[in-house]
Amino acid sequence: MTSRTEPERVRLDKWLWAARFFKTRALSAEAIDKGRVSVNGQAAKASREPRVGDTIEFRQGNEARVVTVKGLSAVRGPAPVAQQLYEETPASVARRLAAAEQRRLAPEPALSQPMGRPTKRDRRTLKDWGDRWSASLDDDGNE
């Protein structure tokens, strides 16, 4: 008899969802369909059944992750339980930490720009700034 938390067979898209790598099962199936997931170095299908010991490589956002399957589950449980289903490889952890450090040290310039139209207060500030300074004139009024 198989226990409820350790089924013999589970679909790959359901396992990725149960291990909390994707918020919904549809998102995990979409990532698989787009070719972003491979099992043991081979392209995977959503119906593929991972086995304990398999190596799964996938992209989660902008980050590539490599995990080894430690357990199977078809149900999505709490995060501590989900973390027992896999073990991330040391190389994958190092790449993720290096990428996070790179983002911290050199943030994307576009993210620092305010979004949307300026408010009335912003427009007044910009107008006041333009009256006080010009790039073509220096302080004594000479070009």
Rank of each mutant, 00 (worst) to 15 (best):
R103D: 09
A94M: 07
S92D: 05
R104M: 02
A94S: 10
R96E: 10
E88Q: 14
V93T: 12
E101R: 15
T89A: 10
P109G: 11
A91M: 02
R96Q: 12
R103M: 07
R96K: 11
S73F: 03
R104H: 04
T89W: 06
R104P: 00
R103A: 14
E87K: 14
R76I: 10
V81E: 00
R104K: 13
A79W: 02
L85Y: 02
V93S: 06
S92I: 05
L97K: 13
A100H: 07
E88W: 09
P109T: 07
A100S: 14
A74R: 07
G77M: 08
S73K: 00
S92W: 03
S73L: 05
A106M: 10
A94G: 02
V93L: 10
A106D: 13
P80N: 05
S73P: 02
A91Q: 10
E88D: 06
P109K: 12
P78I: 00
E101G: 08
T89D: 07
L97V: 11
P107K: 04
P90W: 04
A91I: 00
S92N: 03
A74C: 06
Q102T: 12
Q102P: 00
A74K: 09
A74N: 12
R103H: 09
A100W: 06
R96G: 10
A106N: 14
T89N: 05
Q83W: 04
A79I: 05
P107Q: 01
Y86G: 07
A91K: 09
Q84R: 07
A99P: 00
P90E: 14
P80C: 01
A79R: 07
R76Q: 11
A74Y: 02
